[in-house]
């Protein structure tokens, strides 16, 4: 059952110049992105800073309005609604079904509210006005994220980063959403705490059948949480595949380079890595043809002129590369 179906999503930010704010061009932050997420599934959106992964997630939550495209969301009663076309008022009843986990556990909790007020807020504003009923639900939610309910009256400053992240998760779960957008939920945490939150997210998904859109840059974490992974480069998805295929047999040279760049915590595996030349392309002035061609070691003249389409090269495995079939790229073998 598809929870979210994103079709041809675009977000172009106008570049303004001069006193009158004349539009001189566009930053194509998100450029024709399509994917879908099933119930109980985690799709990770990975890529380097500026690739458009965060903009994509904010469009889906409608924190920003997309320029074009459809965001079809399956509501609790089975309707499919295009979130992209709704206005603020129409959005409100849908909000409760899509929630978010934030990156920064410090700025995501209001320091002036107690834990019970923070977790109870979504309940309160959505009509659960009885205090006793709400407190009961908040206590249940705390238990769900493995925090003692004795902490109800404490303020956020009394908690560590990991505990705050649990509180943020409890708040996101308060309204029984079907989709959770997690924007780098563990990247601000210490390594020893990261593992706890990753495991908690996996447990909650199994118990509640949540769909996750997991936005991250750390491929190691991504491997531990995802069913499928989409790799973005300069506003476009360049590869989307089930986790194992993507890591073992990447189809796009950029994915190969990303995988190769991840440091492996084993000094005996100091492999010869592929070090990309140069920097990520400027999304306001991307290179012609395939955006990746200036940094690609396999690029041909054709790559400079022809824009590749996302094509399926194996079941569920799509790649945006002209030479996808002929290249045999290096992945990271599981468990080796």
């Amino acid at each position: 059952m598809t929870v979210l179906d994103v079709r041809h999503l675009r977000k172009h930010f106008p570049l303004r110049q001069g006193l009158l704010g004349r539009t001189s061009g566009y930053v194509k932050a998100v450029d024709d992105v399509s994917f879908s997420i099933e119930a109980g599934e985690t799709l990770s959106l990975v890529g380097e800073s500026g690739c458009g992964k965060t903009t994509t997630s904010r469009c889906i939550l409608r924190a920003i309005k997309p320029s074009s495209g459809e965001i079809l969301f399956r509501t609790a009663n089975g309707e499919k609604i295009d979130v992209a076309s709704l206005d603020k008022k129409q959005l409100r009843p849908l909000r409760r079904q899509m929630q978010m986990i934030f990156q920064d556990p410090f700025s995501s909790l209001n320091p002036r509210m107690t834990i019970s007020e923070i977790i109870g807020e979504p309940l309160l504003v959505n009509g659960m006005t009885g205090t006793a009923e709400r407190n009961k639900r908040v206590a249940d939610l705390l238990e769900l994220v493995q925090l003692p309910s004795a902490y109800l009256n404490r303020f956020p400053h009394a908690f560590s980063g990991g505990q705050r992240q649990r509180i943020g998760i409890a708040r996101a779960l308060a309204l029984n959403p079907s989709l959770i957008v997690a924007d780098e939920p563990v990247s601000a945490l210490d390594v020893s705490v990261q593992a706890q939150i990753v495991n908690l997210m996996l447990d909650l998904q199994d118990r509640l059948g949540l769909a996750y859109l997991f936005v991250a840059h750390d491929l190691s974490v991504v491997k531990h949480v995802s069913h499928r992974v989409a790799v973005m480069y300069v506003g476009r998805i360049v590869e989307i595949a089930p986790t194992t295929s993507l890591f073992n047999t990447p189809g796009h040279p950029y994915t190969e380079a990303l995988l190769s760049a991840v440091p492996v915590p084993d000094p005996r595996r100091r492999a010869q890595r592929i070090v990309l030349e140069g920097d990520v392309a400027d999304p306001s002035d991307p290179p012609s043809g395939c955006h990746f061609h200036p940094r690609c070691q396999y690029a041909t003249d054709q790559c400079r002129t022809e824009t590749p389409e996302l094509r399926e090269i194996a079941p569920g495995h799509s790649v945006r590369c002209l030479r996808a079939e002929e290249l045999s790229l290096l992945g990271v073998p599981t468990g080796a």
């Binding site: 990753v198 996996l202 190691s220 915590p265």
Partner: peptide, 20 residues
């Protein structure tokens, strides 16, 4: 407890209890 690209997809991590 550190996640690794070599791990089995969707495998749980060993954790250290508590926090710093």
């Amino acid at each position: 407890s550190i996640p690794s690209v070599l791990a089995e997809p969707r495998s749980r991590l060993a954790t250290i209890t508590g926090s710093i």
